[in-house]
């Protein structure tokens, strides 16, 4: 089987590509050929010989669909992969639109629909959650600096300022809010989401939906959070209340594909607030594998039409402890990626 995976950017804000590949290699140790699709020549996963067998640069989503399609077609002529697993939020719209044309090349994908994607987007989250009885922080969608002046009337500082695709900053006053707004707008466009700040601990759920059922779901409490807000270690937990909200959300969305739900457990009331729904597996997806649910492999089973039985349990108290590792390589590999856009191992 040949599978292409995007997002090998294992920096301190890691993408899910490397752990997804690791999960697939666990399941198919000998029969898998993996192609890494990169947006930057310095995505660390590309330099590790045991991650992808071959790596190729593809154009940024913002460069346009035609370019992306042409590039993928030409890589496909060489690598003949059967499946693409996109792992980044911002590329999903494009892959959904390209899916029929990729299917014509014999490339399969398993993705949510555009409508599902829109329902869970940061600017629609409050509407979606209110409609389904899910607790969610209030927000204001800011399209200009002017809108930030309403923050003080709507909620109290601090508030979270979020880019429509990525990035978040906690700000304590109007000046910080304006600075954060401009940063998010410049990078991710409008609107910028201003979200009520909920004090409490962070809990995340990593899951897989097949369009009707929840195939698996693993809940995790973050134990160590970096200054960028990324979980650097975490532990699987079992709170039926949390898993029930996750199941309800996935059912309401009729979600197809990997998904991550981010929650805050509010300190006073112990209620779970749904902060964000990410339309892909999280970077910590390998914890789910370690706890007994190989969700990326199950995703591949869904794509290939193999029988898939929903997971019923996972080990509680399993931990992930992330570490960084300085891989030593030669400038020739970097040159190969920047000049030829390709890097093959072995």
């Amino acid at each position: 089987m040949k599978i292409a995976v995007t997002g090998l950017n294992n920096t301190d804000n890691p993408a899910p590509g490397v752990p997804v590949i690791r999960a697939l290699r666990d399941r198919w140790p000998d029969s898998l050929h993996v192609v890494g699709l990169l947006y930057d020549a310095l995505e660390p996963g590309a330099y590790l010989a045991d991650v992808a067998d071959a790596n190729y640069m593809i154009p940024y989503p913002s460069a346009g669909l035609e370019q992306l399609f042409t590039r993928i077609s030409s890589i496909h002529e060489v690598e003949k992969f059967d499946i693409i697993i996109p792992t980044l939020d911002s590329e999903l719209n494009g892959f959904i639109k390209l899916a029929p044309r990729l299917a014509a090349l014999g490339i399969k994908l398993f993705l949510p629909t555009e409508d599902q994607l829109r329902l869970r987007s940061k600017d629609k989250l409050v509407d979606f959650c209110s409609a389904h009885g899910i607790i969610v922080p209030r927000n204001v969608l800011a399209t200009s600096v002017q809108d930030l002046y309403t923050i003080a009337q709507e909620f109290e500082y601090p508030v979270a300022i979020k880019g429509i695709f990525y990035d978040a900053a906690i700000v304590n006053n109007l000046d910080e809010a304006i600075a954060a707004f401009r940063r998010m707008q410049a990078k991710w466009g409008l609107p910028v989401v201003v979200q009520e700040f909920i004090a409490g601990d962070e809990y995340n759920v990593c899951a897989l939906g097949d369009g009707a059922r929840t195939i698996g779901a693993v809940a995790m409490k973050k134990l160590y959070v970096t200054d960028k807000g990324k979980g650097w270690s975490g532990i699987t937990i079992n709170d039926p209340a949390l898993l029930e909200i996750a199941q309800k959300t996935i059912a309401a969305l009729q979600w197809r594909g990997g998904i991550e739900l981010e929650f805050i457990r509010e300190r006073e009331t112990n209620s779970y607030y749904l902060l964000e729904i990410n339309p892909r597996f999280p970077a910590w997806v390998y914890l789910a594998v370690g706890a007994g649910q190989n969700l990326p492999a199950a995703l591949v089973d869904l794509i290939t039409g193999a029988a898939v039985t929903p997971f019923e349990k996972y080990s509680v108290g399993k931990m992930f402890v992330r570490y960084s590792w300085d891989h030593i390589t030669d400038i020739a590999q970097f040159e190969s990626l920047t000049v030829h856009g390709a890097l093959r191992h072995g």
Partner: peptide, 18 residues
């Protein structure tokens, strides 16, 4: 300067394409 048009300046660590 490599045959591929890849440039490396050892004194500064900067790389270029040409």
């Amino acid at each position: 300067v490599s045959e591929n048009g890849f440039l490396f300046l050892p004194t500064t660590g900067e790389t270029f394409t040409v």
